[in-house]
Structure formats: structure tokens, C-alpha cells
């Protein structure tokens, strides 16, 4: 098993008290598998993805990646985990604005020491970004930015891709095209996918679906 969440809970302090976002969530994901996590706004989908991606820590429960609990890792170890093991795709794209497309694509792979020039060239071609390599994020359309974000996530051939509403900022046609592209690239890397979406239509294209409501899996 690649990822195994066991009884994970998470709360945040707010102005009106403590907000319980996740309440004892458990789920698992095998290598190469794709899983869609659906739910309404505020159901805790993004929080769950952030915890599984090593961006935040749970209040309780275990997050096992290849059998090792990442909830117990220190900042340095968590950073190393993110560099090497996972790829992240966000709704807002979150590219690095000071770097051009080529540097953005290679950033995480080079950071994790997993840069492969041949793979990068192939990936760039598959994503249709060859002519955009010297452009900066602000000079790209939303669809182009998201293709760069997907390329960045896949460049280091991570074991698991976390995608948080990857098409949320795109129109339907562009969103479909981008998802199609991502889904077609996954088998080439062997990565598993955990995608958060509230679109049942998109969720249906993944191997498995789970629904989150009020911090619990339904």
C-alpha cells in the first residue's frame, strides 16, 4: 500500500472557536491507483490532501506512506518527502512567478535531485509547452499555467500526485483537456493520483471515488 490514512483528525482555531475540519478519516491508496475525493465546500477535502501531501500535520491519527508515518517527521524530513515522493497540482496553479516555464517545470525535479533531461524533453512535448519555455507565468493563459503545474509535478517522477481542484480555475473544455492530459501521463510515470474535486463528472473519470461530508468519509 502506498498511502494509508488512519483515523486522521484536524481542527483549526478560528475567531469563533475551534473548527473541527476532519473527524477520524481513514483511507488508503495503492501504487498507480487514482482516487477522486469529492465533497461540498468546507467538507475538509483540501485539508485532507494537504495532510497527505506533507504540507500540514494532523492533530491525531497516522498518515503512512509506504508504511512510514509522515505525521511524525520533522520539518526537514517533511520537506525532503515533498521534494522526492510527491507532486502537487493546485487550483491556483501556484507557479513560481520569478522563474520562466522551463525553470518552473524543472524546479522540483532538480530540487529533489531527480532531474532527467530526456524525460523533461518528452514531458514538455507531451504538454505542448515547447514554444512557451522562455515565457513567465504571468504571460500564460490559465490552461497553459496548469499544464506547466502538471509538468512540474510529474518532472521528478514522484510516486504520488496530489491534485487540488486542478481544473477549478479553467473553463470546462480547457479543464477537460488538461485532466485528459494528466491522466494520460500518469501511466508513463507510474504515479498514483489523489484528486480533490467537487465535480462528479470529473470524479467519474478516476478509478475510485470517495465522498467527504462534514469532515467524515461517507
Amino acid at each position: 500500500m502506498l498511502l494509508d490514512l488512519q483515523d486522521v483528525s484536524k481542527s483549526y482555531p478560528t475567531g469563533e472557536g475551534v473548527l473541527q475540519v476532519l473527524r477520524g478519516v481513514s483511507l488508503s491508496l495503492d501504487a498507480g491507483e487514482s482516487l477522486a475525493l469529492t465533497g461540498e465546500s468546507g467538507s475538509g477535502k483540501s485539508t485532507l490532501l494537504h495532510l497527505a501531501g506533507g504540507l500540514d500535520r494532523p492533530d491525531s491519527g497516522a498518515i503512512l506512506f509506504e508504511g512510514r508515518d509522515i505525521a511524525g517527521l520533522d520539518d526537514k524530513e517533511l520537506a525532503a518527502f515533498r521534494r522526492v515522493r510527491v507532486g502537487l497540482v493546485f487550483q491556483q496553479f501556484n507557479l513560481i512567478p520569478s522563474l520562466d516555464v522551463a525553470a518552473n517545470l524543472a524546479f522540483q525535479a532538480r530540487l529533489g535531485g531527480r532531474f532527467d533531461a530526456a524525460w523533461m524533453a518528452r514531458l514538455t512535448a507531451r504538454l505542448g509547452l515547447e514554444r512557451l519555455l522562455d515565457r513567465y507565468p504571468e504571460q500564460l493563459s490559465g490552461g497553459q499555467q496548469q499544464r506547466v503545474a502538471i509538468g512540474r509535478a510529474l518532472a521528478g517522477r514522484p510516486q504520488l500526485i496530489f491534485a487540488d481542484e486542478p481544473t477549478g480555475n479553467l473553463d470546462e473544455a480547457t479543464g477537460d483537456a488538461v485532466l485528459e492530459l494528466m491522466m494520460s501521463l500518469l501511466p508513463e510515470t507510474g504515479a498514483a493520483l489523489l484528486m480533490v474535486t467537487h465535480s462528479m463528472r470529473l470524479a467519474s473519470r478516476l478509478g475510485r471515488r470517495l465522498h467527504l461530508a462534514a469532515g467524515k468519509l461517507g
Binding site: Y12, L19, S43, S46, T47, R57, L88, D164
Partner: peptide
């Protein structure tokens, strides 16, 4: 806190 940073990536919990 990581919570401050992850806010950058998502508008919702």
C-alpha cells in the same frame, strides 16, 4: 505555521 502557507493553495478547508 504550515496552516498559513497552505492557505495560499486553497480558498477552502
Amino acid at each position: 505555521a504550515p496552516a498559513d502557507l497552505v492557505k495560499v493553495f486553497a480558498n477552502e478547508r
